[in-house]
């Protein structure tokens, strides 16, 4: 964590256990007044433009090709790549999500877990992507005469993804359904999460469906049942035209 973000509350917002290992934060005693300090708030860290933080160039090319098939560009709007879904996934994997921070990751990890028992893999999302993408590249090379996923035609790419979705694609020592599930969930997160995290560029995901974002007050709509909401969407960082006006 960068030093400028190490405020009292952020250290303490970690679990007691995590805090033991990262800092000398100590427990707080609150008495007589609310522990309020002016201008204290905890904004998320915006995804910054720039080079890939987690993916290699080859991995990034594969992920960009995949997100663009999961959310294709068409007359309804941009596809996953232009929406920034690959950047979103890269930044998420580089952060705490990629390490499974906060999850219960103590063993044993039996291989015969029931589907109703949920996540039982010891792999972190970073490991899933690294190993899974390598296995996918190898499988594509073998099946498509040396070509890798980004070099396949759109139809071929869709066939590969569909067989991963069903768990039919044989990957060397990797569950293709698990990889597909992670990529589909993360792509949708990237397409519809606040743009501050690197995806949903220009709020294209929100515009697709008509979600106005973080306006936080819709009382006016109670007077207009069954009518469309016409104000443009707003994100945690405002709207592009606000920022243009500012510069």
């Amino acid at each position: 964590m960068p030093p400028h973000l190490s405020t009292r509350r952020q250290l303490l917002a970690a679990t007691a256990w995590a805090a033991i290992s990262i800092s000398s934060a100590s427990a707080d005693t609150i008495t007589r007044r609310l522990p309020w300090r002016p201008a204290e708030a905890y904004p998320p860290e915006p995804a910054r433009p720039g080079p890939w933080l987690f993916f290699t160039a080859d991995e990034a090319a594969t992920v960009e090709a995949i997100v663009d098939r999961l959310v294709p560009a068409d007359e309804l709007g941009p596809g996953g790549k232009d929406a920034g879904c690959a950047v979103f996934i890269d930044r998420q994997l580089a952060g705490p999500y990629g390490r499974n921070d906060g999850l219960y990751m103590e063993g044993p990890f039996p291989s015969n877990a029931l589907a109703t028992q949920g996540l039982q893999s010891p792999l972190t999302p970073r490991e899933q992507y690294r190993q899974g993408l390598a296995a996918l590249t190898r499988a594509c090379r073998e099946a498509y005469g040396g070509r890798v996923f980004p070099q396949l035609s759109a139809e071929e790419q869709d066939r590969v993804l569909a067989s991963m979705e069903k768990g039919e694609l044989e990957l060397h020592e990797f569950d293709s359904k698990m990889l597909f599930g992670a990529m589909l969930a993360n792509t949708m997160e990237g397409f519809f999460a606040d743009p501050i995290y690197g995806g949903n560029r220009d709020m294209c995901g929100w515009k697709l469906i008509g979600f106005p974002g973080v306006r936080y007050d819709y009382r006016e709509m109670l007077d207009r049942p069954n009518q469309a909401y016409t104000r443009p969407p707003v994100s945690l960082q405002g709207r592009p035209d606000w920022n243009r006006n500012r510069t």
Binding site: T15, Y42, G102, L103, E189, F192, A193, D194, Y197
Partner: peptide
């Protein structure tokens, strides 16, 4: 004012998906 600030509170990824306000299962 600090933890559910209006400039940070409406964040679906952080709170609904990544569970920022909930107990960490690790604990």
């Amino acid at each position: 004012a600090s933890d559910f600030n209006i400039t940070t509170a409406p964040d679906e990824l952080r709170y609904a998906i990544r569970h920022d306000l909930f107990l960490r299962p690790q604990q």
